[in-house]
């Protein structure tokens, strides 16, 4: 019985299928909003889904310099870890698996899709991929510091003097005391998190790793067919996972009483977060260079998160 329930959680909701569908939907929303801001009409909302199924039907060409196992295995590992992360995030008050230290697990699992992209790019044997993976790794180093500081601040706020690293405890705290976003000492942390989300997902202005105009999509240059489709699906799922993480950390106190309504509210909040932090910045900014990106994250964003951490640690 428990195996069937776990299977349901992992495969259908909120695991692989739910994340994949709504991730692709969110990507579609993002593209549409950006297009409207740029005075275009833009593709239909279901375009990413069409793209994914189209790619499944194309031929996967494996270049002769590539290592076949790593080349084909990398997108699979990324997909699996993203499906797993969703299980720890409270979707409208329900968490599939919760333990004592979910946030650290989430922190670790979120590095795995980035590593999968890096290993995939590295194994393709192309010099463009080499440059792309170095930028991706530096981007990961850049956003890990503010991300860790934000998680520590939230854990300290929600748990008092015993740090609450469990997502369920954070959700309960917000249901009892109001949303985390409305505590004034957490506003710098919220700003920092809003800036970490686009870097994790890899949208402009922080997409220097997959710079289409400079290095021809970096790590993905030699990918085609279903492997490429899987990587694009990973990016879409990551968008949903990261905005879901933001919503559950900072806006998780909204309860209507019905489980289905809670899930719908969660999805709507994800869409709002995506529009604010990803689509708007995508439409109005240019791409940052890698050294600017690193300096930006380790000075401004980390500074905001550190402000919040110090305020929270002093008891405010």
């Amino acid at each position: 019985m428990i195996i069937l329930r776990s299977l349901f959680y992992i495969l259908i909701f909120p695991g692989a299928l739910f994340t994949a569908c709504f991730g692709l939907f969110l990507t579609g929303v993002d593209r549409k909003v950006v297009a409207r801001m740029q005075h275009r009409i833009g593709p239909p909302l279901r375009q990413p889904m069409y793209d994914f199924f189209k790619l499944l039907g194309k031929e996967t060409i494996i270049p002769h310099a590539a290592n076949k196992i790593a080349f084909l295995g990398a997108p699979i590992i990324g997909f699996v870890s993203l499906a797993l992360i969703m299980l720890f995030i409270p979707v409208g008050g329900l968490t599939a698996f919760s333990g004592n230290a979910d946030m650290i697990v989430i922190l670790y699992l979120i590095t795995i899709p980035g590593v999968a992209l890096i290993v995939g790019g590295s194994s393709s044997g192309s010099p463009y991929a080499g440059i792309g993976i170095s930028r991706e790794m530096v981007t990961m180093m850049a956003y890990e510091l503010p991300f860790v500081l934000v998680l520590l601040a939230v854990a300290r706020k929600a748990g008092g003097s015993e740090l609450a690293f469990s997502m369920e405890k954070v959700a309960e705290w917000q249901a009892a005391n109001g949303n985390m976003l409305f505590q004034w000492s957490m506003i710098p942390a919220a700003i920092a998190m809003l800036l970490v989300v686009p870097a994790e997902v890899g949208t402009q202005p922080f997409d220097v790793a997959e710079a289409e105009t400079e290095i021809c999509e970096g790590p993905l240059i030699e990918y085609s067919g279903s492997a490429l489709g899987m990587f694009k699906l990973n990016t879409a799922m990551k968008m949903f996972v990261m905005s879901g993480l933001f919503v559950s950390l900072f806006l998780g106190g909204i309860r209507t009483g019905f489980a289905v309504c809670d899930v719908i509210v969660f999805i709507l909040l994800c869409i709002v977060v995506t529009i604010i932090c990803m689509s708007t910045t995508h439409a109005v900014t240019a791409r940052l260079k890698i050294e600017h990106l690193f300096k930006f994250y380790w000075t401004f964003v980390a500074g905001m998160a550190l402000c919040s951490l110090i305020l929270v640690w002093c008891g405010l």
Binding site: I10, A16, E59, H64, L72, V80, A227
Partner: peptide, 21 residues
């Protein structure tokens, strides 16, 4: 349960389209 997910994903990627080497 992880292995089930891995198998499904692997099925899509490796056999979902013809691949050439």
């Amino acid at each position: 349960i992880l292995f089930v997910v891995i198998f499904i994903a692997a099925f899509i990627v490796i056999t979902g389209s013809k691949s050439s080497r």
